[in-house]
């Protein structure tokens, strides 16, 4: 990435919006290209750092092999959960066709 190149293009934002499943208009794609570009431009300061010998840190506190006791808990009430669903039938979540066309 050279200094003159934009950190992210409108095509890349459109691609990322598809990956993230967010519908955007072309005006919105322009808007987010500017927003993301400003943050990613700032991120270029990391290019100055020599991090070759520094391992990545994913988790701040060293806990390992976390197991809980193998005892049955109280499950949530199915009706209480499904009452919060946008659509439910026969004790299940209801969604539009997954593969398109009629279900």
């Amino acid at each position: 990435m050279g200094d003159q190149t934009a950190a992210i293009s409108t095509d890349q934002v459109a691609h990322v919006a598809r990956l993230a499943r967010i519908e955007l208009t072309s005006a919105e794609i322009d808007h987010y290209t500017g927003h993301l570009g400003r943050v990613l431009d700032h991120a270029r300061e990391l290019e100055d750092l020599d991090l070759a010998e520094v391992p990545p840190l994913a988790h701040p506190y060293p806990l390992q092999n976390v197991f809980r006791d193998d005892v049955a808990g109280a499950p949530s009430d199915r009706d209480e959960v499904l009452n919060q669903a946008p659509a439910a039938s026969d004790g299940q979540f209801e969604v539009p066709p997954v593969l398109g066309g009629e279900a």
């Binding site: 991120a43 990391l46 750092l49 991090l51 520094v54 391992p55 990545p56 840190l57 994913a58």
Partner: peptide, 9 residues
Amino acid sequence: GKAQRVRML
């Protein structure tokens, strides 16, 4: 990846 290394730093 780089940001996680900064986290270690």
